[in-house]
Nucleic acid binder design. Structure first.
Lengths: 347, 347
DNA sequence: CTCAAAAACTGTAACGTTACAGTTTCCATT
DNA sequence: AATGGAAACTGTAACGTTACAGTTTTTGAG
């Protein structure tokens, strides 16, 4: 009698989506048992586990995220922190897709935490940590002495960065080997007979500026050719400005005959400046550029390209934060994508 | 005595982040009163509200999302459903940024729900509805008879679409006026003396294929010029294929002298095909293209462009879902972005 | 001064989950 | 037959919030 009344209350659950209570009622087990059976706990009988899991599947049980989160504190969310000011960062979508791919088979949801350069880049980081709105974060545009890395480390908050730092902190990261890229680029240009090279590098405040510049310098030294400074132009500025700077560069008394572009978009600006000046790609001058989509290459087959796989970056970053959340040591979560080499001009 | 012991228990809250209990303890009020004071309920005294809100600010109180979500069922999340197969959908990042901008000032978080064309596009939609992992969804790549729109409507689940449908269902949407775009493009080309026009349209399965094609046809009729079919090529296929199709088109006995491209990336393929054929842009042939970044235009100043603002689209979509969640009627949540007109070639 | 009604405030329960501390059942030893 | 212990299962409480149904206090009318 008493039991019947108790069970009667459970019928309430029949209305919405199934909960542990629903399954407990259907199997005649306790809620705790059901919970433990579903997570394959050792103190539940094999027979029972099978039965519970079967019923759970039949009724389409999905754990209520709010319940889990409230009880355990685990959000099952990974936050990707993005700077929304970037205009030409088309590859960002590839990173996002890569992260998504990796998280698809997990229980994690991906949330985007945007910020504008007009505000403090620390704001979104502090927000996530303070409100614990995610279990881990992915950040990009890392700087040599990145305060976000310090903050996250100090707070023991799991994260992974796209790009390394010089903080002296061992933290999870994924990076493209821009040093190798620049060296390969220089070698390829020299092999084509170019002797006066210039590099369109990223903004000096970013870590990979150093890597790319150093690689370039090392390549130039190794090959014994001339490096012509590409002043006041970075890959992350508006293409019009890059083009203007490139035009100025080409007007010098000793213009470069080989250019290296640190981004796919930058290459367009360089090509535009070159052709406007009446020079011919492949004859008067050559370009090696990074590319993430075959846009430039299809357009100007003479261009030399090195592929950078941003989907891979997204996957690696997601994997790294996930492992970091699970307690892996940072030093084991650092991956460097080595470029395949310079792709020859298309026929 | 009894009271003292009770309050003593509250000290536990001092450890982590502040909760309603913390504020209740600090102000000597009940938890309920604090909760109501913070949401400006009418049955709380002005004096008390001020005091509570002050303390809340001082201790940096932020409502626990899991608590709210568990109790009220509201997730404070909006899901953006994305097809991760698209390679060249660089503008997707602009939509994302637009959505972010609009949600930044609200309590909503943005979560990304990806899917691959290899699976059923309904999967992510069903997932969100069944698990109630968001309060509303934004979907793109709408088709005339989109099953997702039917499903969401039937389930009374708030959503907004990027692109209209022909379902006969009044639902929230934002769209770019591709009909107007195509007509403007035709007029601009005719004004330049072009008489044989071809359109690089989107995939026929998408709703806006109709809009753009109809606009093109109407323009051609109005201007009394010839429409040359652009066979087997759509803006959403790999650029190499577009280029190949364009090359074939230009080899016809009566090739077009004016091209309309439904996407910025497509324009690159067209320019490549044109120049490879030895034709000169602005002299032998003209192109009108949609663009979201000034890449093409900077590169080939002769090109005619119509701007499409994807950030705006993101903002409008976010606004629409939000309003839809708040119960606004769908018919009031439909916005059409009318193109500014064709931008003249740059000097 | 009384009393009704309005204003201001509060305790309890519940959302769905899991950690913890049991309790019951069953079996192998003595 | 008693007993110790392992195996299998369960109830309670708590995470932080809010709806609901109160209770206390204040106010104003008579």
């Amino acid at each position: 009698m008493n039991d019947q009344r108790r069970n009667g209350q459970n019928e309430a659950a029949a209305g919405g989506r199934p909960t542990l209570k629903t399954i407990a009622f259907m199997t005649g087990l306790g809620v705790t048992t059901v919970s433990r059976a579903l997570k394959d706990a050792p103190d539940i009988g094999e027979e029972t586990k099978k039965r519970v899991q079967l019923v759970a599947r039949q009724v389409g049980y999905r754990p209520n995220r709010a319940g889990v989160r409230l009880r355990t504190g685990k959000t099952n969310v990974i936050s990707l922190v993005l700077n929304t000011d970037e205009q030409l960062m088309g590859f960002i979508s590839d990173i996002i897709y890569g992260v998504s791919e990796e998280l698809a088979s997990s229980s994690y949801h991906l949330i985007l935490t945007p910020y504008s350069s007009r505000n403090d880049p620390m704001d979104p980081i502090r927000y996530v940590v303070e409100t614990h709105s995610a279990d881990g974060v992915i950040i990009s545009q890392t700087e040599p002495n990145d305060p976000r890395v310090r903050y996250l480390t100090e707070h023991g908050f799991p994260f992974a960065t796209h790009g390394r730092t010089h903080t002296g902190i061992e933290h999870p990261w994924h990076d493209f080997d821009n040093h190798a890229f620049a060296m390969q680029a220089v070698r390829a240009l020299v092999a084509k007979g170019r002797r006066r090279l210039a590099l369109l590098a990223p903004s000096p405040k970013l870590t990979y500026y150093r890597h790319m510049s150093d690689g370039f310098a090392e390549g130039v030294e190794e090959q014994g050719c001339a490096a012509i400074p590409f002043r006041d132009a970075w890959v992350d500025m508006p293409v019009e400005q890059i083009k203007a700077a490139a035009t100025a560069l080409l007007r010098r008394s000793t213009p470069p005959d080989g250019l290296v572009s640190g981004s796919g978009a930058g290459a367009f600006a360089l090509v535009a400046a070159i052709e406007e000046r009446g020079l011919q790609l492949g004859r008067d001058i050559d370009i090696v550029t990074k590319q993430s989509t075959p846009l430039v290459q299809m357009f100007r087959p003479q261009i030399l390209v090195v592929n950078e796989d941003f989907r891979l970056a997204g996957r690696e970053l997601a994997r790294a934060v996930r492992a970091s959340i699970d307690g892996a040591v940072p030093a084991s979560l650092q991956t460097l994508a080595v470029p395949d080499g310079v792709e020859a001009p298309r026929p």
